[in-house]
Computed example of a mutant assay.
Amino acid sequence: MTEPRLADDEFYTAPEITGHQPGALLKMRKAVLPQLDSVQAWQILYVATDNFGEKLPASGSVIVPDSNAAAGAGPLVAYVPSFHGMGGRCAPSQLLQGGAEREIDHIAMALDRGWTVAIPDGRGLGVHDVGPHTFLAGFSGGAAVLDIVRAAQTIPDLDCLDAPIGVWGYADGGRYAVWAAEMAPDYAPELDLRGVTAGAVIADPGELAERYDLGPYPGLGWAATLGLARANSHLPMLHMVNPIGQTVLSFVQNSTATQVLARFGRPISQYCDRADPWSDPVWRYALDRERSGQRNPRCPLHLYHGTDDIFVPIETAEHLRDTYRAAGVEVSWRDYQCGHYETATEGASEAVTRLSAYLQHQPDRPDKAGPTTFPSEAAP
């Protein structure tokens, strides 16, 4: 299953990537963003990697506040949006250009600090013929974050090659932010990653599978199934879905987040050959490798979560926090007495404040080296 081409914008047609390394800048153009004043912005295509370490094209945006005396002179922060959909015109770079990005307030908060902000679309969104989106796949999400930072550092009009780097995300964006922190020491050791702030982190997709499927928003179960199957396409992960379910998945792959939540109201388990499809050995193999906390970040993290979050139970993030602390990782924590969406708003100010403090701290990095290839553990 592949995303239909969006032929009205050939910018998202990727050039040949053979010979390019992860983070290579493939294409760029100036962009006007109706929701933001006094900024310079670019849409870019760059090289990222998938769950097997194979290179693929990815898209995103890079924004600089015009208040900077030298464009890009401040810190470089990757802002990782939460779930926007599985396909169609829902990539953040497309929504920003169209004036319809719902997380614009958070992006503006980062820009107000004087930071250059890089916003990955995520694997499978934006670029023609690489969808559907690999929703919840940790490695490809983390790689998209680290590689857009690499690409931003090479934009000719910017001065951010040696900039301190931070990452901020929420929900699945928080998941990818945490994966970027875990991957960075091996995948991108040359990056000066100072810290990460992440809210409502989806630390263990396997724990959420049945909750999504049987909960009030089963469309997220469909999206998770399709996204993880796409990320692990070398495995027969959709073998348990019957022909009717396969037809439904063909609609899911081209749906925005709003459509996923509104249109797909029946659990995917009703279209499977077994009542508990995620207990299938192939799925358990893949899901075990999607748990966060199996590698230790070398930068500090700030985690936050809502006590009444119906989408991501707070217990999963608390377990991740405790796992990191037991391993000696510096982690601060804040819980808010509210739900998922309210916490995204309530926690934003402290997230930015914490990230600002991380960016001002100069760590001891005697092992700084050139980029390496991260060993994929997704393939058996």
Rank of each mutant, 00 (worst) to 15 (best):
D121G: 08
H106G: 12
E103S: 11
V117A: 02
G122N: 13
G98Y: 01
V130E: 10
R102E: 12
A108D: 05
G114D: 07
L111F: 09
I107R: 00
D112V: 00
G114S: 11
W115K: 10
Q97P: 01
D129C: 11
M109E: 11
P120G: 02
I119P: 00
G126E: 07
M109S: 15
V127W: 04
T116V: 09
V127Q: 01
G122T: 09
A108K: 15
R123Y: 11
V130S: 08
E103R: 03
L111I: 13
E101S: 00
G122I: 05
H106A: 14
G114K: 05
G122Y: 12
A118F: 04
G99K: 13
P132D: 06
G131M: 04
P132G: 09
R123F: 04
A118K: 04
I119S: 12
R102L: 10
E103K: 04
L96S: 08
I119C: 09
G114Y: 06
A100C: 09
G99N: 09
P120A: 01
W115N: 10
M109G: 07
V117P: 02
M109H: 05
D105H: 13
G99H: 09
Q97V: 13
D112Y: 04
P120F: 01
L111K: 14
R123S: 10
R123D: 10
G122P: 13
E103F: 10
T116L: 05
A118I: 01
L96K: 03
G99V: 05
L96F: 11
L125S: 06
I107T: 10
D129Q: 15
G99W: 04
G99I: 08
I107D: 03
A118Q: 10
R113T: 06
G126T: 05
I107C: 05
G98R: 12
T116F: 02
R113H: 04
G98I: 00
L111M: 10
W115H: 13
A110H: 02
L125Q: 03
G98C: 04
A108I: 01
P120R: 00
A100Y: 03
D121W: 04
H106I: 05
E103H: 10
R113V: 00
A118E: 04
A118W: 07
A108L: 07
H128Q: 14
D121K: 06
V127E: 02
V130R: 14
G98F: 02
L125G: 04
P120I: 02
G98V: 00
V117N: 02
M109F: 08
P132R: 05
H106Q: 09
D112R: 14
G126M: 03
G126I: 05
G99F: 12
Q97A: 15
E103I: 00
V127K: 00
V127C: 01
G124C: 10
L111G: 09
H128F: 01
H106K: 14
G114E: 09
I119A: 11
A100S: 15
T116H: 11
P132Q: 07
P132H: 04
R113N: 07
Q97L: 02
G126K: 03
G124F: 13
